[in-house]
Amino acid sequence: MDNIITFEDFTKVDLRIGTIIDVNDFPEARNPAYQLTIDFGTLGIKKTSAQITTLYNKEELLNRQIVAVINFPKKQIAKFMSECLVLGAVNGKDVILLNPEHRVENGSVVS
């Protein structure tokens, strides 16, 4: 394996639990995507886009808890500013969202 990192490298990644509180279509994206608004509790509300339209509709995403990296720099995607990265397992063109098995407090650390 060529991409080995140290434990110290891993601890720099801030993984948190958040709840999706708003979902909108993102027609300007190159690939089909949604714009998500996510509540991270005391860490605030962040927005991102996610190419998860093949397995999820907007209604089932609302109030779903997800895992996200919240300490990436902001990234401009079309006219939208992405503030975090939602994590999922990639299966071909499908992305299966990672989420806690039980409901936890928004902003909870993932380690």
Score class of each variant (00 low, 15 high):
81 M>P: 04
93 K>A: 13
98 L>I: 11
43 L>I: 09
105 E>W: 00
28 E>S: 07
76 Q>F: 02
14 D>V: 08
48 T>E: 06
82 S>N: 11
43 L>E: 13
110 V>A: 02
62 L>E: 08
97 L>F: 05
33 A>C: 09
16 R>I: 15
101 E>K: 06
62 L>T: 07
55 L>K: 13
48 T>D: 07
84 C>N: 04
7 F>G: 01
31 N>K: 14
86 V>N: 02
69 V>M: 11
69 V>S: 04
41 G>E: 08
71 N>R: 11
78 A>N: 11
57 N>K: 15
35 Q>V: 06
80 F>L: 09
44 G>T: 09
60 E>Y: 14
53 T>E: 06
107 G>D: 05
81 M>R: 10
96 I>A: 10
108 S>A: 15
89 A>I: 15
49 S>D: 05
54 T>Y: 14
86 V>A: 05
52 I>M: 09
24 N>L: 14
79 K>R: 07
62 L>Q: 07
11 T>L: 08
1 M>Q: 03
49 S>W: 00
85 L>K: 08
1 M>V: 03
110 V>H: 01
95 V>F: 08
73 P>L: 12
106 N>W: 02
28 E>N: 12
21 I>F: 10
86 V>L: 03
40 F>D: 10
37 T>P: 01
99 N>T: 13
105 E>I: 00
56 Y>H: 10
31 N>V: 04
7 F>L: 14
91 N>I: 12
45 I>N: 13
47 K>G: 08
9 D>H: 01
15 L>N: 02
108 S>H: 04
102 H>G: 01
58 K>T: 04
2 D>F: 14
47 K>V: 07
102 H>T: 06
86 V>F: 02
39 D>Q: 05
51 Q>P: 02
31 N>F: 05
27 P>N: 12
38 I>C: 06
14 D>A: 11
4 I>M: 07
91 N>R: 11
68 A>S: 12
32 P>F: 05
85 L>S: 08
53 T>D: 05
26 F>K: 01
90 V>L: 11
14 D>H: 08
5 I>A: 00
40 F>S: 12
56 Y>V: 08
97 L>S: 06
76 Q>N: 06
106 N>M: 06
33 A>K: 00
82 S>T: 13
30 R>G: 07
43 L>T: 07
43 L>G: 10
9 D>A: 01
106 N>H: 06
85 L>Y: 01
61 L>D: 11
101 E>L: 04
62 L>V: 11
88 G>E: 12
47 K>M: 12
31 N>M: 05
8 E>R: 06
108 S>Q: 09
55 L>P: 00
103 R>E: 11
32 P>R: 08
50 A>G: 13
28 E>K: 10
38 I>G: 03
52 I>W: 10
65 Q>S: 09
32 P>Q: 05
34 Y>A: 04
68 A>N: 03
61 L>W: 14
108 S>F: 03
40 F>T: 07
15 L>F: 12
57 N>W: 15
61 L>P: 06
111 S>M: 08
63 N>T: 13
68 A>R: 01
65 Q>P: 10
69 V>P: 01
26 F>I: 02
1 M>C: 02
57 N>R: 14
92 G>F: 14
17 I>S: 03
99 N>C: 13
70 I>R: 03
70 I>G: 11
